[in-house]
Design a protein around this nucleic acid. Structure first.
Lengths: 197, 197
DNA sequence: ATAATATACTAACGGGTGTTAGCAAATAAT
DNA sequence: ATTATTTGCTAACACCCGTTAGTATATTAT
């Protein structure tokens, strides 16, 4: 009888969520079936329901797990007393880091949150909107302090966040430059584009 | 008997493709059903098949329509004799313009091409890879001419293209700045990030 | 007016979906 | 060793999917 293998620090549910993230990333939430997931976990589809409530719950777990990490970082950065441009850089570095090290989850959270259902959906959207507002506020502070070019802050945020999403392509490319080189290049372009010199 | 309404310059098939783009953008290719599409066109699902071969064909039409426009523009820009940094700016402007004026199609082509099936899938991927290579080559030329910072060109391309994808968020936001302001801001940040001053 | 074509309809198909019920086996607790 | 709990299995459900066959009704061409 097949059994889901676990290591000491992760429950069976966590194993399933992790495998689900990989599958949702690869095929999209709708196209990835519970039977696919079961196979990738090494068990029959029905058995998954001993550990999870529904397919959607898997998406909740993934999306809010990611969202919480970003919110946490935002709290930390916001309350630190460094120049605005450095706050921006630290946030960008965190985004890049997350995208590199928790690729599947972050990607899914970014692209598949539409398939959440209420009340989770509106909850997620609100959190996302809040995050961007706070990010924009930092940029606006930087503009007032003449650290950052006089640009539309929400537009800047939107560019930054989506640009970082581009790491997806890096992940799949065959000739990758290494992660720290990638980070440096991104910082150069993005922070360089904002900075008022 | 319901009938698909057409204006002089668009066939019934084109009406369907256009509605499909809207639906695919909104819900994703897999989640949008032919019955949904039929309703949005104002007809029964089966009737669609008098005009199209399959659901996938709709995705072909959308993806390759977009891809061809970009390839065309690349041909034009490549063969013009202006500085590299200006070529980059022109391409960026074209991307922004396309994203603003053909939102649904471009968005779908960007995010849903995974659901194409071979031989279209590999065809599309190849075209995409080619496009990026040519874009990177322009940037590399700019680096050699000291117009552009010494950065990894493929990384720069990846950032640019994804950053422009961010216009998606602009489209959906309630408080939009106007399109030409948006373009100027994006150019400032992106071209400013590349330029060697 | 008649014939030919284009378009839409109803009904149904085979197949895939998420999920549940009921039972068996493995593990943990007593 | 016995009991309780966790985990997995088979079988099946109701539902939605893309698509086709066959037929009726508009539109266009003769």
């Amino acid at each position: 009888m097949a059994r889901i293998k676990i290591d000491k620090n992760s429950s069976r549910k966590e194993v399933i969520v992790s495998k689900a993230a990989g599958l949702f990333r690869e095929r999209g939430f709708k196209a990835a079936s519970m039977r696919d997931l079961a196979e990738s976990v090494g068990v029959e589809a029905a058995s998954l329901y001993n550990h999870i409530k529904s397919k959607t719950e898997l998406l909740h777990e993934i999306c809010f797990g990611v969202a919480n990490r970003f919110m946490h970082k935002m709290d930390e950065v916001e309350s630190s007393s460094i120049p605005a441009i450095e706050k921006v850089e630290e946030l960008i570095r965190f985004h890049i880091d997350e995208m590199i090290n928790h690729y599947e989850e972050v990607y899914v959270s970014d692209r598949e949150w539409k398939h959440l259902s209420d009340p989770y959906l509106s909850n997620f959207q609100t959190q996302r909107r809040m995050y961007r507002k706070r990010f924009a506020a930092i940029i606006e502070a930087g503009i007032r302090n003449k650290e950052i070019k006089n640009i539309d802050a929400p537009t800047a945020v939107l560019i930054l966040l989506h640009a970082i999403g581009g790491i997806e392509s890096w992940h799949r490319s065959t000739q990758k430059i290494n992660a720290s080189n990638l980070t440096d290049n991104m910082i150069t372009i993005l922070v360089g584009g904002l900075e008022l010199k």
